[in-house]
Simulated scan of single mutants.
Amino acid sequence: MKTPVTFVGALLLGVSLLAFRSDNPHEAEIKSWHQKRIESLKAEEGWLNLAGLFWLKEGENTIGGNEKNSIVFPAEHSDAFLGKVILKDGKVTFEAAPQAAVQLGEQAVANAELFPYQGKPTVLKHKTLRWFIIQRGDKFAIRLRDLEGTYVKAFKGIETFPITTDWKVKAKFIPTEGKKLTILDITGRSYEQASPGKFVFTIDGKEYSLESVGSKERPHFVFGDLTNKHDTYGGGRFLDAPAPDAEGYTYIDFNKAYNPPCAFTPYATCPLPTKENRLQVAIKAGEKYHGDH
């Protein structure tokens, strides 16, 4: 008789757990979102495997694991001489060294045009290394990935604040067509970016606002708050929101505030919050940070 009782008890426990989950759809949503966020960081195109950011000089830039190269790749994962990256008048090409095992896709490559490109960057491969070209202002750099890099191996997850609907706030979209924000990045470089509008909301009865970049349909925020340098990353955090409805309203869920790439690697070039996006309130929601602020 004990076996049926135990079985019924287990069923009741399962029903109870399912009921708990269904009663907390917001918590389930945030946990699912955060799990996908972790998976994206670990992916081949994620931020954890960044292993170098090398600014190119005009002309030839030799690459490889040997210190005689003008750009030195991790020696444990690179042959001594891989070839040269050539910057000329805003165009970047690659010429492989003799016998160098460099691939474009799954094919060995001797020459390749790296910049400009259409759509996604042109990525070259060698062993566990991947690299492509980025442009920042009038400067060009090699962004290097190492699929077995230090930051991939050291990653232990991301601590977060407790999930609560208190930090899911209704916001009103106010369009600012034609406005451009002057963005300063962590390297000290500045650039302009179009802002479709700002979003106004209240926290504890006080009004705040955030300037968005991206588009009205996919607003993105770089913001700071009073938790920075204490519980969260010193350079601020990122946040995305759904498009506003026909009346101009949406919900900003600070439980989905996430650390910028610079919290995980020194090889990223992250934007910093504008003065208007430095909120004078402690946003105790979303991802925390306990590294070197």
Rank of each mutant, 00 (worst) to 15 (best):
G64P: 08
G64E: 08
G65K: 08
G65L: 07
N66R: 04
E67A: 15
K68N: 12
S70E: 10
S70W: 02
I71K: 14
I71D: 00
V72N: 05
V72D: 06
F73E: 10
F73S: 08
P74K: 07
E76A: 15
E76M: 06
H77S: 15
H77K: 12
S78P: 09
A80C: 00
A80D: 14
F81D: 15
F81Q: 08
L82A: 11
K84D: 02
L87W: 07
L87T: 10
K88I: 02
K91P: 01
K91S: 13
V92T: 08
V92F: 08
F94H: 11
A96R: 08
A97S: 13
P98E: 12
A100V: 02
A100M: 09
A101P: 00
A101C: 00
G105I: 06
G105R: 05
E106H: 03
E106L: 11
E106Q: 13
Q107R: 12
A108C: 00
V109S: 06
A112Y: 09
E113N: 14
E113F: 01
E113D: 14
E113W: 00
F115D: 02
F115P: 06
Y117H: 15
K120Q: 15
K120Y: 10
K120A: 15
K120I: 02
P121K: 03
T122S: 06
H126L: 08
K127S: 12
K127C: 00
T128L: 01
L129I: 06
R130F: 04
R130Q: 14
F132D: 10
I133V: 15
I134L: 13
Q135M: 02
R136T: 12
R136A: 12
R136H: 11
G137C: 07
D138Q: 14
K139L: 10
K139E: 14
K139S: 14
K139G: 01
K139F: 03
F140M: 06
R143T: 07
R143D: 04
R145Q: 12
D146S: 05
L147M: 11
L147Y: 00
E148C: 00
E148R: 11
E148Y: 01
G149H: 03
T150P: 04
Y151Q: 13
Y151M: 09
V152G: 02
V152F: 02
K153T: 07
K153Q: 15
A154S: 15
A154V: 01
G157S: 09
I158M: 06
I158Y: 03
